[in-house]
């Protein structure tokens, strides 16, 4: 098997190696921050595959993140399912919900699509509040102490250790990154880009664009669900704040900042933005104002984001 775009593949490996090394250099606090960044970057990569590569701008991806979070968390909390299985249930939860919502929402396009996804996500958020006797609503649920560790293939894993958490997050990040490399740089990725660039022409060439878009939507939802399940199980907490409209906007912002349609853009965007938001929220309760200003500034002057701008200026293979 030949690897397409070898330079980008090498860059991915370098980035992964640097991330692995980081745990020996950084302080415990920064390792924890990096763990969060990696999980949110998985979410952003899932979003980017839909928004950046396929050109479908969804305003409701928080619902898929929350679907993974709740499917995994509730299965563990009420069903007593072991963590690895709960994790798989979470991925399925995100993927299945995305498939069903995609069947309906993909009948619409552009602005309609944005509003339909927003509306469905709002329904999902309200449902988590309405069934608060099950979900814990705003207060959320804390997973039992027994779920803070598990054994996989005879290997005992303790989720209270920051190093263990970091390496699990990094492993899954690497799996998703390499998986998305295979998808986006291969023939399927070219189809996604074809839909983004000219949907009518793609249709004319004999491709069923509805199915292509549904596939992209489902993969994107499953990855978002994976990130949600990972977040909930690793930190032992599930709550409806993850389903809020704000989460959908944040993932959009991460992708826009890093560069939509670039493989490593979501990691860059998530890193920059979470560090920035963490700093700011220490200073003022009105930190969202920065989110607002950035949304406008990026839209006006840097619609391609950090890596997108670098790609257009200097490094054409960075996609």
């Amino acid at each position: 098997m030949t690897i397409p775009n070898k330079k980008l593949f090498a860059l991915c490996l370098v980035v992964l190696a640097l991330l692995f090394m980081a745990q020996f250099v950084l302080s415990n606090y920064l390792v924890l921050a990096l763990t969060r960044i990696l999980i949110l970057a998985i979410f952003a990569m899932g979003y980017n595959m839909l928004m950046g590569y396929t050109g479908l701008l969804s305003l409701g991806h928080a619902m898929f993140f929350a679907a993974g979070l709740y499917a995994a968390g509730l299965a563990n909390y009420y069903g007593g399912v072991s963590l690895p299985i709960a994790f798989v249930i979470g991925i399925l939860g995100g993927g299945v919900l995305a498939f069903v919502i995609g069947l309906l929402a993909l009948r619409t396009q552009t602005v309609s699509f944005m509003i339909v996804t927003l509306m469905f996500a709002q329904v999902a958020y309200l449902l988590t509040l309405y069934f608060s006797n099950v979900t814990g609503g705003d207060q959320g649920l804390t997973l039992p102490t027994a779920s803070r560790s598990f054994s996989l293939f005879g290997l005992a894993v303790d989720l209270t250790s920051p190093m263990v958490r970091f390496n699990i997050a990094l492993t899954l990040f690497a799996v998703v990154l390499i998986g998305l490399f295979a998808v986006t740089q291969g023939p399927l990725g070219r189809l996604f880009v074809a839909v983004r660039e000219n949907i009518n022409r793609t249709e004319m060439l004999g491709f069923d664009t509805y199915r292509i878009r549904l596939l992209a939507f489902t993969i994107s939802g499953a990855i978002s669900g994976l990130a949600g399940a990972l977040y909930g199980l690793m930190f032992g907490f599930i709550g409806s704040s993850f389903a809020e409209f704000r989460s959908s906007i944040e993932v959009l912002l991460f992708t826009l900042v890093g560069g939509p349609g670039t493989l490593l853009g979501p990691l860059v965007g998530t890193g920059v933005m979470t560090m920035l938001i963490d700093r700011l929220s220490g200073m003022t309760s009105a930190y969202l104002i920065v989110v607002g200003v950035l949304l406008i500034v990026i839209n006006l002057w840097f619609p391609k984001g950090i890596l997108g701008t670098i790609r257009d200026r200097w490094v054409p293979w960075l996609k």
Binding site: L57, T110, V111, I289, N299, L300
Partner: peptide, 25 residues
């Protein structure tokens, strides 16, 4: 942004955050 429909939605989300947070402050 030439009233591009998608960019307008993203920008007005930004405007809404700015107004909201300035009011909070």
């Amino acid at each position: 942004i030439n009233y591009n429909p998608e960019a307008t939605i993203v920008s007005t989300i930004g405007i809404s955050y700015i107004i909201q947070q300035l009011t909070l402050m």
